[in-house]
Each structure stands twice: as C-alpha cells, then as structure tokens.
Design a protein around this nucleic acid. Sequence first.
DNA 1: TAGATTTACTACACGGCGTTCAATATCGAC
DNA 2: GTCGATATTGAACGCCGTGTAGTAAATCTA
Lengths: 236, 236
Amino acid sequence: MGEQTISRRARLRAETTREIKEIALRLMAAGGPDAISLRAIAREMGMTAGAIYSYFATRDDLITTLISDVYTELVDRAEAARDAVPEADPGGRVVAWAQAVREWALANPEGFRLIYGDPVPGYRPPEGGAAREANHRACGGLTGLVAAAWPQAEALHDGDYDWSDFDPDLVAQVQGEFPGLPPAAVALALRVWGRMHGLVALEIYGHIGPLAKDPAALYRAEMCDLVRSLGLEPPA
Amino acid sequence: MGEQTISRRARLRAETTREIKEIALRLMAAGGPDAISLRAIAREMGMTAGAIYSYFATRDDLITTLISDVYTELVDRAEAARDAVPEADPGGRVVAWAQAVREWALANPEGFRLIYGDPVPGYRPPEGGAAREANHRACGGLTGLVAAAWPQAEALHDGDYDWSDFDPDLVAQVQGEFPGLPPAAVALALRVWGRMHGLVALEIYGHIGPLAKDPAALYRAEMCDLVRSLGLEPPA
DNA sequence: TAGATTTACTACACGGCGTTCAATATCGAC
DNA sequence: GTCGATATTGAACGCCGTGTAGTAAATCTA
C-alpha cells in the first residue's frame, strides 16, 4: 500500500498542523494571548473555524500543544546558554541559564505568559499540567546546576528531605542523571527555580518596570547573590 | 436641597456598586477569573448586562477596581502579619510578611492571578498599572523591612544605584518614610520582592505542586535563607 | 404641587467567540 | 472509474462585551 501515499497524506496533515500552530503563535505575539481564536486562525488560513477540529479536538488542546512547543523552545535555549559556559565555571552556568530565561521571556512575553501564567481566557490545563515533559526538563536542568554546586552548597543549606517528598518521575530522573545526589539538592533546585522566576515574572507582568529603570541590573545582582548562596563564584 | 436625598441616592448607588463587586469576586472565586462577565453578574442581580454600565464605564474598569480592592486587601493582610511581630525581630517580620502573602495567595488563588497574572480575557490595565497605589504600598512595605535590616544588610550587598534608577513617586515615598536610606536599599527591596514572589507564583500556577509534596517547607526554607542574606536571624 | 431634568434600567441589535453537526467536496486506494 | 476515508463547509446554538434608543422612576426647580 505505497508508503509514499500514506506519508504524503501524513505530511500534508503535519504541514497544516504546523501552520495552525505558527499562525496561533503569530496572532499571540501580535495581539496577546486572547488573540488566539480558532476563528481568527481559520480566517488567516482561508478556512472555516470548524475545520481546525480535524487537527485539534478542542481549543484547549491547541493551547496545550502550543505551551508544550514554546516551553520546549525555552528549555532548549536555557540548556544551550548553560552549555556555552565550561563546566569548570558552575557559577557562570547558573547565571547563563538564568539570563537566557529572562532574555527569552522579554523577547517572548506572550510565550512566558502562556507557560507560567493564565494562558488564555477559559483555558484549563489537562491533569498533570500542560507541559509535564518540558517542566521536568526545566527542573532537571536546574537540578543539574545545583548538583554541580552541591559540594559547596551542601554545607550552606540544611533541612531534612526525603525522596518521597517529590514527584516519583522527577526522582527517577534525578537519581538516574545524578546518582548520589541527596533529596535536599532537589529541594534546593526548586528554590533556585523560584528565585530565578520571581523577578522575571514581576517584570513581564509589569510590576517592576514602572518602579525600576534597569531591571536587568536588579536581576544580575540577584543572580550573583544566588550563585554565592550556592557557595560558588559569580562570573566577572 | 436636602443633604439626605443626595446622600440617599449616593448610598443606593454605593450599595449597588458594592454588590456588583461582591458578586464579581464570588463568581471569580467559583469559576475562575474568566467567569467574571457582566452578563453573569447582571443575571445574578436580576438586571440586564447594560445596566452595569451605569456604574462602570466598561468591563475593564470593573476589573481594575477589583484588582485595586483585592490588592489592597492583600497588602493589609501582609502589613498586619508584619506588625504582629515586634520590631525587635526584623527577621521575623520579614518571614511574617512573606508567609502572609503566600497564605493569602493559597486562600485566594484567583485574587492572586488577578493581581499578578493575566486577570481576565482581553483585559488591558490602564496606564501606570491597574493598582498603582497598592503596588506602591507593597513596595514601600518591603522597603521598610529592608530598612530595618539595612545596618546588617548593607555590607552584604554592593552595587551602585542612584535615586534616578527608580520611579520618582516611589523615591519620594521612601525618602519620606525612611530618611537616610540609600537607593541601594530600594534595589534590595525589589529583589526581596522577587524572591518572595517566585515560589508563590510557581505554586499558584501549578508548576511546583506536582513536583514537591510540601511547598510550604520549601518556601519556609527559602525565606529563612532570604532573612539570612539580609544579615538577620530567622525566627525559631 | 406641577413641570423639568437627571438617573437607572430594559429591550434589542451587532459582531465575536467555541463548539457541534449534517452535508459536501476532495483525493488516495483499489 | 468507483469506493471510501478524510477534509472542509455552512449554518446553527448559546455564550460574551458593547452600544443605542426608549421608558419609568426618582430628584430638583419654581
């Protein structure tokens, strides 16, 4: 039954799916998250709104896919920035990760809102979150940063944690990637995540912009402080 | 022209306004921020949607008022929690403020989204933010916490800042309330804000919940670390 | 008290939204 | 060339915010 024919249909389908997502992202970038409407997308494609239901069961399905795509892009970016700094400079890798996230967020504020805020009017994410996998990658990446600092950081952070305090999937991932790392390091990684996230979220949602003229300097200072609290040296 | 009659009309009007806001908040708490629709409110009041335009020029006006009210409530709560701890324990006051914010957010997640997220479908805040005043109070409160710690904190945080780096209104407020406090302390206050905000935002939006079983412990640890980074002693 | 004016509200219309569904066009499979 | 799956349409339903015209009542003026 000719592989080509099947793959041809599949290719057309994939192409249309890609176009839907692309237009959705473009509309979002142009007019905010609520500009993502099936009717607007269809209009842009010369189709009817109902036609999209051949590709996504519902609007929320489309949104969930978008979140996953965008989140993956963000994590890719963060990992790349981190890997551009040699492993011998763990503090620099932390800062690189953080800066990459902030710069991506500023360049794609709607994407940031999609991932970390209320994405779109009535959207409710599916069970387990919209982009469970990307979320795990982000958390795993942060755990890696903490793992590299753990020899120095361990003495600075106490508190007793148990593996049962965390999501089993995450635990499996961490124990696979960083054998010997204690659960307290995962707790620290989550805290680091929160610390990286806070100022960026405030900035993206316009709470800091009016008050401080140079949010980048604030963030830089905060990240240097973070690195020091991990027992590392901040980069020059 | 009878004072009473005027005040009577005004009172009825104020009462209706209050009822609109109350129902809006109830709808929001019940069905998420997007459940706030003029039609739903009017339905609940036995009115027509158009009637609400006698009280609020537009839906966004109503939302802005709600944000301001809710934000004021949050700041009230935080200030009260802070003031319940003696001034002799500045670290305890910091933690009390932070805990109050987190607990309020967990109890009123929709309110938190209203303030710190995308409030509602197509809502766009007015120039200068939706609740400029409450925002200033929040920021001022944090600056006060930092001011109390500044003797110890100053040595731990460098970086040169100028008053011109910050919003003039905020500068005036700070200089009035805390004379002698340098601009670097304001920068630190904003960073503290970000640090308090990060984990709560991640938790409210469901990014941490699935990963960590006890977010409260994480937050507590993070806040103790924050207090230490201000050169203070965390509470027992 | 009688008339003029302001105010609160209804009724209806407009366009936009997500979603469903029967009918139809399209096109690979045989 | 015909069959059958797939993609797409077009109309409908019930939401939504927002205007506008008209009405009824409360308030002010004389």
